[in-house]
Design a protein around this nucleic acid. Structure first.
Lengths: 248, 248
DNA sequence: CGGCAAGTTGAGGGCCATCAAGTCTGGTGG
DNA sequence: CCACCAGACTTGATGGCCCTCAACTTGCCG
């Protein structure tokens, strides 16, 4: 276990200022530091960049300098194919890191759009690399975060390649539910930040299919839908959809 | 530019033995070292692990220790859903790195199966992290490789979420063609290492659809199919399929 | 040569896209 | 405050793409 003091002492001098230090908190958050240690880290943090609903955090084609830790809010990430089709590659919420796709070419390959008023912490990538050379625990953590993104993408590929519309939507709702729960929000009642079309783009469905399937779930008593407010009324049924919907 | 001598001197003592040093070559290969430097690196390399066709390099659930650089051969990576459905997440050939999904949980999440007799170089992950703390160029390269995997996955998501069967197959063939070309093989004539079913799993199609679509391409004069031997006869037509197949 | 996996091809049906019409909602301005 | 409008959403009808099932052929290996 590293103490925050140690962290500060280990970091290069030019990293001791303002926002860069957010990186310490954001990236060390899941490292299991004690509450006191986290509070000490907090004292170093100064500012976060606000992003209004609808604004882009970055866009495909822009040069890459920083990763972004979401402090608050909700984003979608999407790629646009040469011929103009949008594929939402992910929805991201507080505590998650965005922009890792850009490392490969030093150019962002996705758009990142805020779906509600949000706050992010900019983490200059050079600083991350410098720091993670000095703090093995941070290095390890960063690698795990990138790896987790790969695993997540594989899950989406499984969903897109194998599942039917009902299963996709059930998986989507359960995934959201779980992520809200982790953050201390209700796991059974939440507000969708995205349109049906964005859900559809993510799940490889058309917006009409998303809408129809939600209605179907509601008719079956699995969920209650009021516009973007979703209430899960029978989570087990949704889970069963995922496990039993096929032959073999 | 770092010299291999320098590399050796910088590396911790326990890394100076046999196979670990493969990592230097495999990972430094794209770093733009001079030919002399690469040859020096080669002298350090001793062994590579052979994997026979059909054998697993690793399987989901196994503990994670190492990444693997493919020296020779061809692999598929696939995830199995809880209910037994297989999704091929990628096909990998010489020079590529496998296993990065496992970093997140220290457990492999994919199966990696050799589709032809292959050779891999085992890269203990601890060594990679140790080394990349000492060699910023290596650190950067490793991050780029992981990031590239994420970008690739996003491309597959776009394919699975937006494209029709013909487009998927055209994209698949063109991608293979390009990757063979990079490795010095013919870009217009190559041998598929995987079954129609594996192609289908990767592309989110059934094997019959893959077969039918290949036949269709052949009828149209785009390609020639003889079992697993593919000859691209009209690459432009295939590319056009990707760019013009939709309305907006 | 026999046996089996891999691949091809056809027929039919189901799931979801597409097109279309209408409703609802939230924001804006009079 | 309310009318209004554009975008978001719902629901229905229809059709097409691809899955499914089935039969057959081909290639491969002992």
């Amino acid at each position: 276990m590293i103490s925050p003091i140690q962290v500060r002492d280990m970091s290069p001098r030019h990293l001791r200022n303002s926002c860069t230090n957010c990186s310490l908190r954001e990236l060390c958050l899941p490292l299991g530091l004690s509450q006191e240690e986290m509070q000490e880290l907090d004292t170093i943090i100064t500012q976060a960049r606000p992003i209004k609903r609808g604004e882009a955090l970055y866009r495909a084609g822009e040069p890459f300098r920083s990763l972004y830790a979401i402090r608050l809010g909700f984003f979608k990430a999407s790629v646009i194919s040469e011929d103009g089709r949008e594929q939402v590659t992910g929805f991201h919420m507080s505590g998650e890191l965005m922009g890792m796709d850009a490392i490969s070419t030093d150019v962002h390959t996705c758009d990142a759009i805020a779906l509600e008023d949000s706050e992010v912490c900019e983490l200059p990538f050079n600083d991350i690399e410098d720091l993670s050379r000095e703090i093995p625990l941070l290095q390890r953590h960063f690698h795990k975060v990138m790896s987790r993104e790969i695993v997540r993408d594989h899950g989406v590929m499984l969903l897109l390649g194998n599942m039917k519309a009902e299963e996709r939507l059930a998986a989507f709702l359960l995934n959201l539910s779980q992520r809200f729960a982790i953050r201390g929000y209700s796991s059974s009642s939440f507000h969708l930040r995205m349109t049906r079309e964005e859900i559809g783009s993510y799940l490889g469905l058309k917006l009409e299919t998303v809408s129809r399937t939600l209605s179907k779930f509601q008719d079956q008593g699995f969920i209650k839908v009021q516009n973007r407010l979703i209430e899960l009324e029978n989570i087990d049924s949704l889970k069963k959809l995922l496990n039993t919907c096929h032959d073999e």
